[in-house]
């Protein structure tokens, strides 16, 4: 690895975008967060299996580079709208896993005080305006947030995450059109994981690449390998610069894959074991990023081990926090329907 280390110091210029853009410390932090997303979802899944979490959840395991790549270049007060598969976005934007676990456990210490659960996880303080249970529901809302940014001159950029399923909703068309007409500082990020529930994009979507639809709104349409952190981050970086400069929106199609089923009811009848196995073994975004970091000399085995240990501890503590937190009182069922008047 001596030569790799030398490459870092001598010729970062030849490395992919993020290795030129960010410090070693920042890149290690990205790996840390990607592990945090993975282990959070594995932890949530296990808690669900053990009956500690009820309802359902939509896991983004396999899509961590997409969430991190988009959110890493955002400023803290930039905003996002997220999806039913939104745990990764929430953590990538800065949420604490203990308050996310608490929300999943339905506790008062959760981000939504136990009223939202997995599908409505939010962290308004860090700019996450919320996951959404309606496919495409967050897209016009993001455009509205971007309109606020423009009218109030806050300089904020807004990212709207959605899946391949949402690109066939009317809200997608209406929202992208308005954002382009009004040149709003918003970035549309389509995380194309190949399937809207069980229906593949080939069976549901007339264009081969969803990014092609950007042409209909006269905005750049960018395709990235959503499992390669650097590719995603570079596209996000450019779209943010364009948005901040007042040049309007961008559509980024981040091609990725979810290792798990759509939700907890999924029997995986619409895709083959071989296909899933291929993505898990050969295109896992964490493994890909980790090996690049190693190859370019940003981290060694010991460093990786330290990250894994720290994440494991954070997850364990988060679950304990959730378990120990109080449930809302039944007398509070009617709270938060309307703003409490003083």
């Amino acid at each position: 690895m001596a030569t790799a280390s030398k490459a870092v110091t001598d010729s970062r210029a030849n490395l992919p975008f993020v290795y030129r853009q960010y410090s070693a410390e920042q890149l290690k932090q990205v790996l840390h967060k990607m592990y945090l997303i993975r282990r959070f979802e594995e932890g949530a899944e296990e808690c669900y299996t053990r009956g500690l979490i009820h309802g359902t959840m939509h896991l983004s395991i396999g899509q961590e580079a997409s969430a991190m790549g988009i959110c890493m270049p955002l400023a803290e007060d930039d905003q996002i709208t997220s999806t039913h598969r939104g745990h990764g976005h929430c953590i990538a934007k800065g949420a604490e896993v203990k308050r996310m676990f608490a929300e999943f456990f339905g506790k008062t210490t959760g981000y939504c005080k136990g009223r939202g659960g997995s599908m409505h996880i939010a962290d308004v303080g860090k700019g996450n305006l919320g996951a959404n249970g309606i496919v495409g529901g967050g897209i016009p809302i993001a455009v509205g947030a971007a309109l606020s940014s423009k009218m109030m001159k806050t300089g904020k950029v807004v990212v709207s995450f959605f899946g391949d399923g949402a690109n066939n909703e009317g809200a997608f068309h209406e929202a992208l059109n308005m954002a382009a007409v009004w040149k709003l500082p918003v970035i549309f990020v389509c995380e194309n994981n190949g399937y809207g529930m069980s229906t593949s994009t080939a069976r549901s979507t007339a264009v081969k690449n969803i990014a092609e639809r950007a042409a209909a709104y006269s905005m750049p349409g960018v395709i990235v390998n959503g499992n390669i952190f650097s590719e995603v981050a570079e596209a996000s970086h450019q779209a943010i610069a364009r948005a901040r400069a007042g040049e309007g929106p961008t559509l980024i199609e981040s091609k990725t894959y979810r290792h798990r089923g759509h939700s907890k009811s999924d029997r995986n009848r619409y895709r083959t074991k071989e296909e899933i196995e291929d993505w898990m073994s050969n295109r896992d975004p964490i493994i890909l990023f980790e090996s690049e970091l190693r190859e370019f000399g940003f981290i060694d085995d010991k460093g990786i081990e330290a990250i894994r240990d720290a994440v494991a501890q954070e997850i364990a503590e988060g679950i304990e926090f959730a378990k120990a937190s109080p449930s809302p009182d039944i007398s509070e069922t009617g709270n938060y329907v309307y703003t409490e008047q003083a």
Partner: peptide
């Protein structure tokens, strides 16, 4: 800029109004 003609997009327009209200405006 304050009396905004929208496209004929009721769903999107309502969503934009919701998003603007959520982030500090009074549409």
């Amino acid at each position: 800029d304050r009396v905004i003609d929208t496209p004929i997009s009721e769903l999107g327009g309502a969503g934009v109004a919701v998003g603007a209200a959520l982030t500090g405006m009074r549409p």
